[in-house]
Nucleic acid binder design. Structure first.
Lengths: 160, 160
DNA sequence: AATCAATTGCTGAGCAGTCAATGATTCCCT
DNA sequence: AGGGAATCATTGACTGCTCAGCAATTGATT
């Protein structure tokens, strides 16, 4: 077997490995799931999935102060990404910018009444899709393991 | 409790629900994982994660005919997305377009020697990151369940 | 107290994808 | 055989992000 043939062979083996397949599956499943949610939310509630994720944080505890910085870290966006996202959400009347009392560099974000109303409608759509494509396909016994595993992965990623 | 207060309360409850959290975790973990891989591959091998996913398919079985259409479906991209991706990969010399023998509408894609060489280097980088952030954090017993669950989710998404 | 470093949000330029429309080919049906 | 519908790849116009650089503010050190 000449060197070129061996290289082909090595490549084929690497491409066929268990790990590569499994990892690919995780990415693919997550991507498809997010696309599904996103189109459903856009069609029925005129919000993107990303905007929905912002509204989740803002509605969870209305008294909590949430800065753009915090949102960026939590959604894995850059600060400029968040600036533009909040721009659009403000333009759509979902959200309001408020200067942070303790730090004049920072900008707090809070949901408007309209934002909360949209969030409530979106949450039911969200729940339907999640129920159908995330909860239903997974055996009851596996669900807890799945979420636990995801938590560990997230932790490992955050720690470095 | 007046109507506005009730709405706030409903919103807070919805934002706090188990399902919302769990689902958010899946998306976040997958996103972070993909970003991690992507930057590692870009830095050390000058390929994006998406390009790497293409190379996996092309190297797995060198005799197999792979069209742009097939790639698009498999990577959940649109046909125009694939056209542009293959444009860039062709420009980088990783890949070659070949007219499909049986169907003159279709275009087959195959890896060049350079593409296979890059893939081999990228695969070791990929394996390191996957090992560290995907395999290591998940308990041995959970791993099989996790991949099985992901497979079921993917199946549910594909069937509709 | 003064300075230097770090953090926060914003802007211009660029990149990687989408959507809608198009031309070329193939499939299906009668 | 012929005509309409479907399928494939491509392009132009757009979107939503990133990156690099900025000004304003804050923190840390001496």
């Amino acid at each position: 077997m000449n060197p070129a043939e061996r290289e082909n062979d090595d490549a084929a083996r690497a491409a066929d490995s268990r790990l590569v397949q499994d990892f690919g599956l995780l990415i693919k499943a997550a991507t498809r799931l997010e696309q599904r949610i996103d189109t459903a939310l856009r069609k029925e509630c005129e919000v993107s999935h990303t905007m929905f994720e912002v509204l989740i944080r803002l509605c969870r505890r209305p008294d909590e102060e949430i800065s753009q910085r915090l949102l960026a870290d939590d959604l894995t966006l850059t600060s400029s990404g968040i600036t533009r996202l909040i721009d659009r959400m403000e333009g759509a009347g979902l959200v309001r910018r408020v200067p942070a009392p303790g730090d004049r560099r920072s900008v707090l974000v809070e949901a408007t009444d309209h934002g909360r109303a949209v969030f409530l409608r979106a949450a039911t759509v969200h729940a339907q899709v999640v129920e159908r494509y995330f909860v239903a396909p997974v055996a009851r016994a596996d669900y807890a393991r799945l979420t636990h595993a995801l938590g560990e992965i997230d932790k490992a990623l955050r720690d470095t």
